[in-house]
Design a protein around this nucleic acid. Structure first.
Lengths: 107, 107
DNA sequence: CCTAAGGTTCTCATTTTTGTGAACTCTTTT
DNA sequence: AAAAGAGTTCACAAAAATGAGAACCTTAGG
């Protein structure tokens, strides 16, 4: 039934970015990495909850295409309100933190 | 120069909510509490960085009134993109987590 | 082969968030 | 007292996210 496509996009993205060794522009990618991480987390939580995109969509009160969009690593439009809705639907809560900017510098 | 109004709103909000003993509807407030927390954190980070709303606004690339809005505990429109901009301006990074819904139940 | 489930992508109307300036309060400084 | 600095609030235009349906791909099953 399902496709063997895990969170392929997110992974692929993280890989290509991290391995690329583009260390000088890491900061620029930080933003995109956060998006990819969120996408992956949503995917993870959804599948672990045994839900299809359709199923989660119903719980959240939106459409499958909207869920799909959220699980796209390239999606840059995450809002806190949506994350909260997702979390609630999966019996989780969202926590936001401001941590010191990681500057691994020369790895 | 400044006003002696700390993060009064955030505090007031958290107080009134927590102390109210409205324990049966805590979940409903969870959402609002997150907003209040974000507002407080932004205020905290900004002042600790020795910046005025105007100063932070310039770094972020927006107006003082926009910053003021973000520090309002009742503001419900936080977007991840804005939080990332704020974080970047303050040399921080945003971390999002989905934690198990806290159900302190009968405290 | 045909069908259905799960997922992806596209488009577009609607809703929400952001940007901005103005007006106002309070406080400190000159 | 007047002016300037910091913060708040309001209103409205501009930009961005969401809602939703349709079309499409792929795999699993009958």
């Amino acid at each position: 039934m399902a496709q063997k496509k895990f969170h392929s996009k997110a992974s692929k993205f993280l890989y290509s970015r991290y391995i690329a060794g583009d260390s000088k522009r890491e900061e620029e990618y930080d933003e995109e990495i956060i998006n990819a991480e969120i996408a992956r987390k949503i995917y993870e939580l959804r599948t672990k909850a045994g839900l299809t995109q359709q199923g989660l969509a119903e719980r959240v009160g939106t459409s499958k295409s909207a869920i799909c969009r959220l699980e796209d690593a390239d999606y840059d439009g995450h809002s806190l309100s949506m994350l909260k809705r997702i979390a609630e639907a999966l019996d989780k809560r969202v926590v936001i933190r401001f941590l010191p900017a990681k500057r691994p510098r020369t790895a």
